[in-house]
Every structure is written in structure tokens, then in C-alpha cells.
Amino acid sequence: MTILTKMGATKKSDVLVSVHDAKLHYQVGGAFAAMRGKSTVVKAVDGVTFDIRRGESVGLLGESGCGKTSMGRLLLKLEDITGGSIHFDGEELSKVHRKGLKKFRSKAQLIFQNPFDAINPRFTIRQTLSEPLENADIPRSEREDLIIKALELVKLPEPAQFLDRYPHQLSGGQLQRVVMARALILQPEFVVADEPVSMLDVSVRAGVLNVFRDVRDRLGLTAIYISHDLALVRYVCERTIVMYLGRIMEDGPTEDIVREPLHPYTKALVAAVPVPNPDQSHDPLPIGRGAPDPRNPPSGCVFRDRCPSAHARCAAEVPQPRPVGSRLVACHLF
């Protein structure tokens, strides 16, 4: 890591984001729960390591409670990291404050899950898009121009007509484009998109996804796409990181993962994705019943209680990610 930092000072490193053993633990329940011997710590993210190269699109895939959203928030310094480190462009995020933070905020952006909630209902679209510009001290005379350009970028037709409207006058698809425009208006390098289409109607999802792909390619963005839906991740990301209970299970090229998942959890996940084709046959799911409990994860491998191929070693020892071909897999089978 130190080598990377030093390199960053002289020459732009190939790696934009570097996560090393990142942890995010929450305290839940009170002293009474602790007295009754219940675990009071939820390990939302528990020792995650990965690098993201410049211009790369990475999908963070997993079920609810797997830590994918927490990981995204850590990457944007919206949560304080409990342990480990995250370097953005060579700088360690936990040491970024005030001025540096302001600069970081203009470089790293978030696209929200729920566009109906992500825009202040009292603000017009113009006011909404002006906010990041004001914070970046962009003179008033240049703002209008930038706002129009950002709205054109996200393919909102005739952007000028939207400027004085309020959010409730826009459809979900249009709102999500405004949310994207706000994220992109300062030309960031890095964007985290947290399930950006899950709240939208099915007929307009494709439009938003296409804009996302198009903008990313045009601006050369480095992107994280958080989702529980492998089909969507596959549509926008070349690389996928599969998470389960705060840990990485598998990390590799999306196509490889879709075609031949290696980790038993990924196998179940891929098999479970429904296909919009009634003629498709389905195999039974290779997974046990039950649900992950983030408060009391099993010892050793966190997936072992649902894993069809779990054995003695899985309970005793936490599997470390190991390279298997083009991928990293955290499983004792490999």
C-alpha cells in the first residue's frame, strides 16, 4: 500500500481505489443484550480487500444484509471505517478532512437507489443541480450552462423545460436522470450507484441503465454498481464482487461468474435468478434453507450453514480468497 501511495505522488497509479481489510462494525442492542450473552456487534463489512483500476466497472453483488451498501458507503466516506484502510487516488480516506474532503466529494459521487427520496421536494430541479456547483464555488454565471449540459448528458430531452419544475412533477425515470446529472455535474472520477433502478418501473429501467453505461464510457468513469440482481450487474459491469455477510466470496470477470460460478454461494445465486423466458428450464437450488443472520454468523466460513458442500474445515477456519484462474474465491474447496 505504501508503495502505491508513493507512486501516486509521482505518477498516476493504475489503481484508483484500494481497499485493504476494510471493516465496518455497528454496535447494536444495549448493555442488557450483552449481559444476556447476545452479540452486540454487527459486522456489516468484515475484512474486505480489493482494488479498482481506473475506468473499471465493478458490481457489488449480494443479498440484503451482505454488506454491499455499507461497503459503498465506506468507499464514499459516508461511514467511519472501523478497521483497515481505503485509499482513493493514493490518499487514505480516514485521513481526509475539511479541504481534502471537499475535493474528494467533487471526485467521488453516489447515485441513489430511490430517486423519489433523493431530491429535496422543496427544491426545483435548478436548485437541486445548483447545490454541488455552489459548494464547488463555481460562479453563478457558469452554473446554468453546466446544469443544461449535465441534463443533456443523461439524455433528458429539452432540459430547459425541467429547470423550474419540482420533483413531484417528474416521472421516476426522469427523476433518476436528474439524480445522475447531480452526481455527474462536477465531472467526478468515481461513481457508486446503489441499486439505481430498483425503485423504477420495469419499462423505464432499461433507459436509465443505458444512460449509465453510456455516460460511464463517455466520461471514462470508474464505477461501482451495487445490486442484488446478477442480470443487471452483468449488463453494466465487467467485473463482479460477490459478498455474503460482510465478506467477499468471489471476485472476478462477470461473464466467467455468470457462466461458471465457482463458490457454492455464487452457484446458488446464479441458479436463483429468474429468467424472463417461460421456456427456460430450471435446476433445483443448490442451497440449504434459512437466512443469513448478521448478528450471529457461523464460525469459520460464514456461508457454511447453508452450504451443500460444507465440511469440518469450514467450521474451523475462515477461508481466505485464493486465485483460481481469473478469479479470487474464498472457499476451502479451492
Partner: peptide, 14 residues
């Protein structure tokens, strides 16, 4: 906890 408050934070607002 509303999205737009978080959004303002991400947009760099004090």
C-alpha cells in the same frame, strides 16, 4: 435519514 439530506452531503454541502 432522507436521501436528499445524504445527497447534500455527497454534493459537498457543509
Amino acid at each position: 435519514t432522507r436521501g436528499y439530506v445524504e445527497a447534500a452531503r455527497v454534493a459537498g454541502s457543509s
